[in-house]
Design a binder for these strands. Structure first.
Lengths: 212, 212
DNA sequence: TTCACGAGATTGTTGAACAATTTGCAGATA
DNA sequence: TATCTGCAAATTGTTCAACAATCTCGTGAA
């Protein structure tokens, strides 16, 4: 009787995780070509494995593909940013109203750590905690698909950040206060105020990222 | 100056489309193993191509994958059905309110063809038109991501249908009247009534598909 | 300037081979 | 009987080498 399901991964899956991380972190910027031979050589695997990796990355929307032209790190346009925020509003605003006491407490905890990360200018951690903060809300809606999609588009915003790096710090700093408002309103049980605060926060973030 | 972008596809992409269609149609039922050697032989391609096909299918959520165990046609559980309808409500209900006059007319047209298909007991066309009907609504929200996801989950419901084939005809028949109510309310500009009708329609569909 | 045309780069695909892992079954064990 | 063990077969994971198909881009011709 196997106690824990062994999480075996193929080389392709492991490499896809690594390259995906490089894309998220900005090491591989939007538009960068993902050449088969190059990736194969640099990671010591065969081209076949790399081709599978590329298909996996496309499946995660981290890359785009065109026959005989290969894959590139997918690019986030201003229209994509609008699209993403439209979707985030749909996912997050109704979910906010479904958070129970326990979820709100967890949210407050995350906010504390987020605030500390920003204080320490640890932008990488701050971004991850920002993700956790908004994920916690979406999770209350109880749909694993929505949670997965929300995570996907949230991370794709980090690629938009890269296009305007000067706004990342600014946005993360401003979010501290805005997140606090949401937490306070939720803790007070004032759902309408919480919704207004979240809505304003999303408007603000979108404005920053879409370049007004 | 190229007028139309040539839509070149690789063998893997073409085969993925074929196998995907076989999955949607039920020819390959949920849970069916997708064996590399078998697919390679039966379609006259190499295993490498098949492996890419499988990654593509997983990317479309049509198959699941496990290292050293291979791919299977993905299975839709009752919980998945609930999850999907939760998401459909979120996508469709707010979108309904954003439909303009033109969109409503298009919806009415689709409904006419849907009604005819059901009358003719052409269940395949009816299912596709049912999809078009609901897609038309989601399209009004103006998000290409939402539209793509909606399409993905809608089609995955057809696999749930397969598990309870006796309900597919029943559901499609009942939908004729329910769709009509929505169209009539929209045409009359009564958004609240349209929303109630759509909500009831989704409740009804979910009940049928989740087996209650 | 614009166009055609190659040569080189890159992707698409195959086949054979072998390693790694799972699966199912036959026999051993308690 | 029940279950455990271990091995053979089936299946997936990966590499290598080769060649076909397509794109890219610079060069020379019209």
């Amino acid at each position: 009787m196997t106690v824990a399901a062994a999480i075996r991964l193929t080389t392709a899956e492991r490499l896809a995780a690594r390259v995906g991380e490089a894309i998220r972190s900005g090491e591989l910027p939007p538009g960068a070509p993902l050449r088969e031979e190059e990736l194969a050589r640099s990671h010591g695997v065969s081209r076949h494995v790399v081709r599978e990796v590329l298909r996996l990355l496309v499946g995660e929307s981290l890359a785009t593909y065109e026959a005989y032209k290969g894959a590139r790190v997918s690019y986030i346009s201003a229209e994509d940013v609008r699209d993403i925020f439209r979707t985030r509003r749909l996912f997050e605003l109704p979910a906010l109203r479904k958070m129970d006491r326990e979820a709100v407490q967890a949210l407050a905890l995350i906010h504390g750590r987020y605030s500390a990360a920003v204080e320490a200018c640890d932008w990488r951690s701050a971004f991850d905690l920002d993700h956790d903060f908004h994920s916690k809300m979406v999770a209350a809606a109880g749909s694993k698909r929505m949670l997965r999609w929300h995570s996907e588009i949230f991370h794709s915003l980090s690629r938009a950040h890269l296009v305007r790096p000067e706004f990342e710090e600014q946005g993360l700093r401003a979010s501290v206060g805005e997140h606090a408002e949401i937490v306070v309103a939720l803790a007070a049980g004032d759902l309408d105020r919480a919704e207004r605060a979240l809505s304003a926060h999303l408007d603000h973030s979108e404005a920053l990222l879409s370049g007004r």
